[in-house]
């Protein structure tokens, strides 16, 4: 089976490439012209340049491919220019979907987000809980909802949707959810709101995505979550784990949104990353408990315990000097 991974140089992409190779496949790895390909080079991965704004480059990469894993959906790094983010995300999604049809692929797995999962009256949300209209929480949620809706409407070939929760694990070089771990290890206490965070080990998420692509019979939408946690309780446990003083009390949702908006404005002016981003605040404040039992059954995943996930991330982060060497940690 010929497979293509869009977004292969990214966090989840590298985990997926490893999973596919462990399963005996040799995926073609699509990469942007300017990105960090050192991990792909060290894996001796087959690479191809793809620009999601260049339809021909996508079509060419997909030629002869059976299953495409699309992990390169636009991720708005800030919420300051929502219209541009929406337009970019939808345009690129359409380019990818059209290229799949023109190249004659059999199946695509589009990796979306648990941001698209709607609340359930029963408490725990499942695959059937979908927002009927854009959630309206912020740019990230609305764009992810729009992109997933566009992907789910594709009828020229089969599209399956994977919704991983907040991923923690090796190769999170940009530090998404793993930033919580790094902050604790570095004795940083960044103000956060409280809410439910649906966490998943990156290797488990990658396995789920892979199975959705490879199994003849798999759910059209799968929620990939290993456990649901209150963020503040998780931060307290992380600070205990690293032997550092407990984090400050959570801030309110409105205060957190205002802080994140101010941080994003400052980060844009100073061309640097803010301490807290709006999409993270929205994900926490609107976080939902998720029931991932369908993925457990249909995709055969055994979710890693959080302690195992944290151990794996810690070992990798120390190797990469993201977390200080043990002798420097009090």
């Amino acid at each position: 089976m010929n497979t293509l991974v869009l977004g292969s140089a990214g966090f989840l992409g590298l985990n997926l490439v490893d999973a596919l190779r462990a399963a005996g496949l040799d995926p073609l790895c699509a990469r942007r012209k300017r990105t960090n390909v050192i991990p792909l080079r060290s894996r001796r991965a087959r690479m191809v340049n793809v620009d999601l704004d260049d339809a021909a480059s996508i079509r060419e990469a997909m030629t002869g491919i059976d299953v495409v894993f699309h992990l390169a959906g636009h991720y708005p790094r800030h919420s300051q220019d929502g219209l541009v983010a929406m337009e970019t995300g939808l345009r690129q999604m359409q380019n990818v979907l059209d290229a799949g049809a023109e190249a004659g692929i059999k199946r695509m797995v589009y990796v979306s987000s648990t941001a698209t999962v709607a609340p359930s009256p029963s408490g725990y949300s499942t695959e059937s809980d979908v927002f009927l209209v854009a959630p309206g929480f912020g740019v990230y949620h609305d764009l992810k909802w729009l992109m997933e809706r566009r992907a789910a409407a594709e009828r020229r070939y089969e599209v399956r949707i994977a919704c991983p929760g907040a991923c923690i694990g090796p190769w999170d070089l940009r530090l998404g959810t793993s930033a919580l771990v790094v902050a604790a290890a570095r004795r940083l206490d960044v103000a956060h709101p409280d809410g439910i965070v649906a966490v998943v080990d990156s290797a488990d998420a990658a396995k789920g995505i892979m199975q959705q692509g490879l199994l003849a019979d798999a759910p059209a939408r799968a929620l990939l979550v290993g456990g649901n946690y209150r963020l503040h309780a998780m931060r307290v446990a992380l600070h205990e784990r690293y032997g550092v003083p407990a984090p400050g009390a959570p801030i309110g949702a409105s205060e957190a949104k205002a802080l994140a908006d101010a941080e994003e404005s400052r980060a844009l002016r100073e061309h640097r990353r803010g301490a807290l981003s709006r999409e993270i605040v929205d994900l926490i404040v609107h976080g939902l408990p998720i029931d991932a039992s369908l993925a457990t059954r249909a995709l055969g995943i055994t979710w890693s315990p959080l302690s195992t996930t944290l151990d794996r991330f810690d070992a990798w982060a120390r190797q990469m000097r993201i977390i200080p060497p043990l002798e420097n940690v009090a």
């Binding site: 300017r34 990105t35 960090n36 390909v37 050192i38 991990p39 080079r41 060290s42 190797q319 990469m320 000097r321």
Partner: peptide, 15 residues
């Protein structure tokens, strides 16, 4: 570092 590795075709490990 990645650009350098590609430019000179050298194998650099992430560490």
């Amino acid at each position: 570092l990645s650009m350098l590795a590609e430019e000179f075709d050298i194998d650099v490990e992430m560490e």
